[in-house]
Amino acid sequence: MLFYIARRLLFAAFTIWFIATATFFAMHAVPGDPLTQEKAMSPAVRAQLEARYGLDKPLDEQYLLFLGNMLRGDFGISFTQENRRVNDIIREHFPISATLGLAAILIALVGGVAAGSVAAHFRNRWPDRAVIFAVIAAISLPGFVIAAMAQLLIVRLNSAVDSTWLPVAGWGGVEHVWIPALVLGLGTMAYLSRLMRASMLEVLSSDYVLAARSRGIGPWRLFWGHQLRNAILPVVTELGPSIAAITTGGFVVELIFAIPGLGRYFVQAVQQLDYTVIMGTTVFYGAFLVIVVMLVDISYGIIDPRIRLTSGRRR
């Protein structure tokens, strides 16, 4: 087990290094640099700025410098946001993205499990058909369309009751969280409910459920005690990749609902070619994902020893 964890840790470290390197060189391949602006800059000013940000050094030296700083956990100062440290940007805006993502995953998990169970129990009857239809709709609609339509719906709802029931956009209280989280989690919810339905159908036709039922156990105890616990396993295994999908898919929702999360800063930074912010956010997101997936994998390794034998293979 220790060997397995050590291997995973080593792999995670290498992956983060790979992400950092790929980001660094992809970014420097973009024509222009963050100092290129519409307004012409005098050579003296430019030289000063280049010296400040270390852009005057050769690329390999910049790379080593960046790696060194990264190891110390320092991503430098933003180019476009005056004197703002990238670490501060991450510290201030990641919790917002994380809150949104966490809420989305919770909604997706609860909703998916509930919908899948209902569909399986009412197989081929109208609740089942309704769930299947909703799943298909959620899978074939792009996230940004769902987000925009949700917003339109909120506006219509607010104007119908002639008050601001639900905020259309922005960030602040609890009321700002749940609609974007629902929109963000919808795709994952659809996927999980499909998975849950399939595994619940399998459980429902299993012998131990039949045995439990023949012993006279009531439907609710049967559901909580026997069916749910067995059927939920494949859903839980899919949670790792789902977290990845939700945290990186968050920025459309952040853009549309005007939520000051980290994803928005990433898109903005790429547009402005803000080297330090791009590096910081990408490496941070990448490391976050790698570590989450690693933790999930290790915990499966503890739960199910068979997984350890086929280690290093994800999905």
Partner: peptide, 21 residues
């Protein structure tokens, strides 16, 4: 392949799309 899969897909789509210019 393992490394490439570990890259956050949409982030790198954006980055590469801009990088390839």
């Amino acid at each position: 392949a393992d490394f490439v899969v570990a890259l956050p897909f949409l982030l790198f789509m954006i980055l590469f799309r801009v990088a390839f210019g």
